[in-house]
Amino acid sequence: MKTVTAMLLLALTAAGVAHADGPASDRQPMRPVSECMRPDRINNWAVIDKRTVIVQNGPERYLVKLSADCPRLGIGQSLRFRPNESNRAIGLGPIGPVCGEVGETVSSRDQPPCAIQSVSKIDAAQYKDMEKHAKQHGFLSNGDKP
Rank of each mutant, 00 (worst) to 15 (best):
R82Q: 14
A18D: 12
V102W: 05
I48H: 04
Y62A: 11
G96W: 04
R31Q: 11
I54T: 03
V98L: 13
A89M: 06
V106H: 11
L63V: 09
L63H: 07
C70S: 14
Q56G: 11
V53G: 04
L66E: 02
M37H: 01
I42Y: 00
S25P: 00
Q28M: 03
C36K: 02
R88Q: 15
P94L: 10
W45G: 06
R72F: 05
I90A: 08
V55C: 06
G58C: 09
N44R: 15
P112R: 12
Y62M: 07
K65Q: 10
A46C: 05
V64L: 06
Q56F: 01
R72T: 07
V55I: 15
Y62P: 11
S34G: 13
R51H: 00
L73R: 10
D26G: 14
C99G: 09
E60G: 05
G96I: 12
V106E: 06
V119G: 05
A115Q: 15
V102K: 15
S25E: 05
H19Y: 13
A89T: 06
F81C: 09
G58M: 10
I42S: 01
K50V: 09
D110L: 04
V98E: 05
P32L: 03
R61G: 06
T52V: 12
T52H: 11
D49T: 09
S108Y: 01
C114D: 03
S118W: 00
L66M: 06
N43K: 10
R31P: 00
I75K: 08
H19W: 13
Q111G: 04
V98M: 12
E35I: 05
Q77D: 15
D110E: 00
E85C: 04
S34D: 13
S25C: 01
P97A: 14
V53T: 07
I75D: 13
K50C: 00
P32C: 02
R27A: 11
K50D: 11
R80W: 04
R31N: 06
H19K: 14
L63G: 01
Q56P: 07
D40A: 14
H19I: 14
E101V: 02
C70L: 02
N84A: 08
M37E: 02
P83F: 05
S25F: 00
P94K: 11
